[in-house]
Design a protein around this nucleic acid. Structure first.
Lengths: 203, 203
DNA sequence: TCAGGGCCGTGACAAATGTCACGATCGACA
DNA sequence: TGTCGATCGTGACATTTGTCACGGCCCTGA
């Protein structure tokens, strides 16, 4: 039996995944989480063989959880599941120690198979996404530029961003300007969108 | 047996829901769709009793599908399922003729029960969401203001919005300004965010 | 019939935004 | 050791954005 941990913030999806995977005779769900920040603790208690982690979760995002889980319980492999096939997500998930990366667009039948492959020590990655990920290049933003873009995500003004990050307004404008340049955008809002779509704004 | 149609663009979620609802002895999934614009045709072929529609779908959004489905096959009740509990979604779904509205945060066990209630002619609505929906008031934006905000969603400049909508730049600025006022925002980007969160930018 | 509202446009203005040039410090790295 | 890049700041400037006042057209409801 492969022991499974499931983490997804949408109760309906989580429950449905339980039903789906519960149909497989060789899989057993031993734990469920709806927040990222309880996964490691739960894993230490229940000792799963494979953890299915969503990226978008309250508390802590799935990629950060991946890194911590790999450190705390190396015997547990991680399969990351996500709604959005952002190139940066895949790259960072693999760098964090994930064994597989699956988008929610993939047929349901392949999920159990992916779990088995991951448990088997193989890597599982959507080939199309892998290609896109390679093509999109690395995150060109510096840490500060990411911070400023993240703070600008909700339509915040320069003054508010500066106050939130304890920077001068001029500095914020400089970072925004260089972020706009690096993302090949033509306005702050477009830069935010491009960075989001590439998965460059996590953590 | 209650005959079910399922529409959700994420194959994994759709498959998982099939597994979940397939466990219920009185439910039978007779059709699946991954695009909004094929649902009506599919429903006319398979004659389901209840349709489970996601709001966010390619082709046609679930609320537009609801209206068309109600017209084409009045015997089929609609239960709308969505990731985002936007107040405006609920209001528009009910106005379009949906019998129920469920967010993906609700426990999986309640889904089958919701399907039965809807099939029974009852209405199913998350009470918390209903309250929020009433509190948030109606969409204050005029059709044109919504158009302009929608066009501004991706960080587009005034000149580009004007070109896309065949308007003068001054007019676009006026609409943006009044939309900013009506949403109580302080910039275009914030107005876009507020309108999105309230579900005012559909269709 | 008239008032009101949505729609479309113009022009002018203040404020915010984006760009550039210029320093300065610091750590990493060859 | 020197160089490079990231970080933080200043000041000046052009452009864009947001606001306001005004005009006109059309439709709807009182």
């Amino acid at each position: 039996m492969i022991r499974l941990l499931l983490a997804d913030d949408q109760a309906l999806v989580r429950g449905a995944l339980v039903a789906l995977l519960g149909l497989e005779p060789d899989l057993e769900i031993v734990a469920e989480a709806e927040r990222g920040d309880v996964v490691v603790e739960l894993a230490l208690e229940t000792r799963p063989d494979v953890a299915l982690l969503d990226v978008e979760m309250p508390g802590r995002d799935g990629i950060a959880v991946t890194a911590q889980l790999r450190a705390a319980l190396p015997s547990c492999r991680v399969l990351v599941v996500t709604t959005f096939g952002r190139p940066g997500y895949l790259k960072r998930a693999m760098a964090a120690g994930a064994s597989g990366f699956v988008v929610k667009d993939t047929p349901a039948r392949q999920l159990a198979e992916a779990v088995r492959r991951v448990h088997d020590g193989q890597r599982v990655v959507d080939p199309a996404l892998a290609a896109e990920s390679l093509a999109s290049g690395d995150n060109p933003l510096s840490a500060r530029e990411s911070d400023v873009l993240r703070a600008a995500q909700r339509g915040t003004s320069v003054a508010e961003i500066a106050a939130a990050l304890f920077l001068s307004e001029g500095t914020v404008r400089n970072y925004l300007s260089s972020a706009i340049g690096k993302t090949a955008a033509r306005s702050r809002a477009e830069a935010v969108r491009i960075a989001e779509e590439n998965g460059w704004l996590l953590s």
